[in-house]
Design a protein around this nucleic acid. Structure first.
Length: 788
DNA sequence: ATCCACTAGGTTTTT
DNA sequence: CCTAGTGGAT
């Protein structure tokens, strides 16, 4: 595409931001101001200047963001160019670097990655080994402390030496944290594993301790772009700084008003103080909001004004003035659900909207339940994002643990997970002995069972045989690793480990669903191999699959709005999305803002930014609701409306009399299991149910779109939903390809698209190639250019 | 070693 | 309301 045409699609400030590339720059991108557009066009611009794609590094926070950006650059500049960009999450790019340089930091390239559950388990074991009380040393808390330390690049040694930290721990009566931290890190290293934070931490160490390595990467990454810069933590900030030190060609994009991840170590000062780090930096502000009505933008502005210490900006909209934000109060959380469901139904009829134009946003996942009920009763189809993701389910984690064990036999948590799964008569007592022996001889658990006699492992002959069988089993898989494809080996593992047999014996509904999940996982691996093959790669082994899935997260699941379904998600998960109609629910003190954050002003400001993010998702209509009583933790509590409601200028709100009264002041009293509440609740529920029954009895009103509970769980990107909806043929597609298009594939040559199907994450095109016959291409992976 | 039943404790957000 | 973890019985 011609670069001049491209620049014409930008407004003045966007274009200036795109065109300036002589030094560091900071782009402050207000909500809905075309941030992604600036990033992608900038990359296109750089490519057009002649910078090769492999010299551009572009960092994001989610795989999804990276994928989308890649696709958009692909549309502008061609797939084959986009493919060569270094574009990905901090974690995935760094893990790639660390694998090549693993030996320099005391790991080997096949290191595996602990998820947070693994980390917590290891911390738990260590706390036990130190014979500490896990009520004083709460694993979750220790985990957070260690994570913070790593994100601040504080090593275990530095931690122990830091006067400040030691004093804090003494005061908190947890002086052993430093020892736990030390052991934890040692154990990770001994088992050749890294936790998420390590990926950032060790990249920093690598660059600090090996200037020649740093130099290589500085030379490679001639231009660096960072998305969502307000969410970077110290470790991320410093890596970027080190990489950019040589040439200062770095562009960071973000919005301080949307910084909502400080609990994960994100430091808003990185963006606020950018100028002092790069005094010569140019700052560009994108202030025109193209997404929302003026009322929505103004309401959001009036809210965020209450925060101190922001980058001065004037976000404005030239769209319609639009409706005011509607505020509603409900007697109970239950009624809140009904109000929202009714409103959705009304709006859908009056505005002729689709269900997919609606989103319900809440502070905590637990709130989704009531809305599930109220929507279901009205036969409104919905989809929930978040909650347990596919890879967090037990049966999937078990299989993945086998994979990890085969790729990296030293992986301690993987070992513990599968040593007795499926049950093979090796219980806690034996595992305890193995752990003790391993520690004594400074070995991994795997090495210990490899030669029990030599290490005086004190088990009876029966157990020794069982251990030996296990060792032989895994060893067999390990031997296959270099020769078998990921799919072949995965299938073999599921079969021969006995997982398949166990799953088939279980005929309960849960058992059946587990079988399906296993099938789905294998199907996903198959697809993964196929698509990589299509890309021209060879020998796609288990290790390739594993390194990809370990860094997938809920945020990466396809959030593309599904046809005709209301969306529900946490506000955090909604970042970057937009909807015509937004419902922000549960606006109550101690829920939003959460009681956990209220102790310090910083926490409160972050909650306010979260609310800002929620409101600015809306294009046309936004409703804010709260309940006067809420069922939580098994009891009904009365609650007060959120103070945030008062932060919005009244002129942008449409609230019935009394709705905004009672904000602040007074304490929430606990009305334990209020009798009348329960009575009313039951009655309401009954009435609603009768209503539903009546409808169901009338054939004509039978709902057309069933709500599937399965949708509750997010699916991994490359795994096709087993019981996916009937595939509706699509004519045009986000990848810019359509039926009838002529494409040029890297390997198959020229062909014509004859069909497109599947949902965005796993969308496939059937292509009739001139010379290569008919092929199915997974659009996400396939490498081709559209030529006609 | 395994399975079941009961209890106590905690529920913010998640790369 | 959930769930993870424990203790007892087999």
């Amino acid at each position: 595409m011609d670069i001049e045409n491209l620049l014409q699609e930008l407004n003045e400030s966007q274009r200036k931001a795109v065109e300036y590339n002589d030094g560091p720059s900071l782009v402050i991108a207000g909500a809905g101001s075309g941030k992604t557009r600036v990033l992608t066009y900038k990359i296109a611009y750089l490519l057009n200047l002649g910078l090769p794609p492999h010299n551009i590094l572009s960092l994001t926070f989610t795989n999804k963001a990276a994928r989308e950006m890649k696709a958009r650059v692909g549309q502008l500049m061609g797939e084959s160019v986009a493919r060569r960009l270094w574009m990905g999450t901090f974690h995935s790019i760094f893990s790639r670097i660390l694998r090549t340089e693993a030996e320099k930091i005391g790991f080997t390239s096949n290191f595996t990655i602990f998820d947070s559950a693994d980390s917590r388990n290891l911390i738990k074991t260590i706390i036990k080994e130190y014979q500490l009380d896990d009520k004083t040393y709460k694993p979750a808390r220790i985990q957070a402390m260690i994570s913070n330390a790593k994100n601040a690049l504080v090593s275990p040694v530095a931690y122990a030496q830091s006067k400040e930290m030691q004093e804090y721990d003494m005061k908190a009566k947890i002086p052993m944290v430093r020892d736990i931290y030390r052991s934890y890190n040692a154990r990770l290293q001994a088992s050749n594993t890294m936790d998420f934070d390590d990926l950032l931490y060790y990249t920093n160490r690598l660059f600090r301790d090996h200037p020649e390595v740093l130099k290589t990467y500085q030379d490679r990454f001639q231009f660096i772009l960072v998305d969502e810069y307000q969410d970077t933590n110290f470790a991320q900030y410093l890596v970027v700084k080190q990489l950019a030190d040589a040439h200062h060609r770095v562009c960071v994009v973000g919005d301080d008003a949307q910084s909502i991840y400080s609990f994960r170590g994100a430091n808003i000062d990185n963006i606020l103080n950018y100028k002092s780090n790069y005094p010569e930096a140019r700052i560009f502000k994108l202030e025109q909001n193209y997404r929302s009505t003026q009322n929505i933008v103004n309401a959001a502005n009036s809210l965020i004004k209450q925060n101190k210490g922001q980058i001065q900006k004037n976000v404005f909209s030239e769209n319609q003035v639009g409706e005011k934000l509607e505020v509603a109060s409900a007697f109970s959380d239950f009624e809140e659900g009904i109000i929202v469901a009714n409103k959705i139904q009304d709006l859908r009829r009056s505005k002729d909207s689709s269900y997919s134009d609606f989103v319900i946003l809440y502070r905590t996942n637990a709130q989704s339940r009531v809305f599930e009920e109220s929507l279901r009763k009205k036969n409104i189809p919905y989809r929930i994002y978040g909650g347990l993701s596919f890879y967090q389910r037990k049966e999937i984690k078990d299989v993945i643990a086998y994979f990890r064990m085969v790729v990296n036999p030293k992986d301690e948590e993987a070992f513990k997970r599968i040593i007795n799964y499926p049950t093979r008569g090796i219980g806690n007592t034996t595992v305890g002995k193995i752990v003790d022996t391993a520690q004594l001889h400074n070995l991994s658990l795997w090495e210990t069972i490899g030669d029990p006699l030599a290490h005086n492992l004190n088990v009876n002959t029966g157990t020794a045989k069982k251990l030996n069988d296990f060792h032989t089993l895994i060893d067999g898989f390990i031997k296959e690793l270099p020769v078998a494809s990921a799919y072949e080996l995965a299938t073999k593992i599921v079969k021969e480990s006995g997982i398949a047999r166990e799953a088939y014996q279980d005929q309960t509904p849960e058992g059946m669903s587990r079988q399906e999940n296993l099938q789905e996982l294998l199907g996903g691996i198959h697809e993964f191999c196929e698509s990589r093959l299509e890309e021209g790669e060879q020998n796609i082994g288990l290790i390739d699959f594993l390194s990809e899935v370990s860094l997938l997260s809920d945020q990466d699941t396809d959030k593309e709005v599904e046809q005709e379904k209301v969306t529900m998600m946490t506000i955090h998960a909604s970042k970057g999305l937009e909807f015509k109609n937004v419902f922000v629910v549960g606006l109550e003190e101690d829920l939003f803002p959460s009681s956990m954050t209220k102790s310090e002003p910083k926490g409160l400001e972050e909650e306010r930014r979260l609310f800002y993010v929620a409101i600015t998702r809306a294009e046309q209509f936004c409703m804010l609701t709260y309940a006067k009583s809420r069922f939580r933790n098994g009891q009904t509590n009365s609650c007060n409306p959120s103070r945030f409601l008062k932060d919005i200028d009244r002129e942008f709100l449409n609230a019935n009399a009394g709705v905004l009264e009672g904000t602040m002041g007074g304490f929430s009293q606990q009305t334990q299991g209020n009798f009348w509440d329960t009575v009313r609740r039951n009655r309401e529920e009954k009435e609603e149910l009768q209503e539903v029954k009546r409808k169901e009895e009338s054939i004509f009103e039978r709902p057309q779109i069933p709500v599937s509970r399965e949708d509750k769980y997010s699916k991994p990107n490359f795994v096709n939903a087993r019981n996916a909806e009937p595939k509706t043929p699509l004519t045009k597609d986000i990848y810019g390809i359509q039926v009838g298009a002529v494409i040029k594939h890297e390997r198959f040559g020229i062909g014509t698209v004859s069909a497109i199907e599947g949902d965005a994450a796993s969308r496939k095109a059937t292509v009739e190639f001139e010379n290569a016959g008919v092929k199915q291409l997974l659009l996400k992976f396939a490498r081709f250019d559209i030529i006609g």
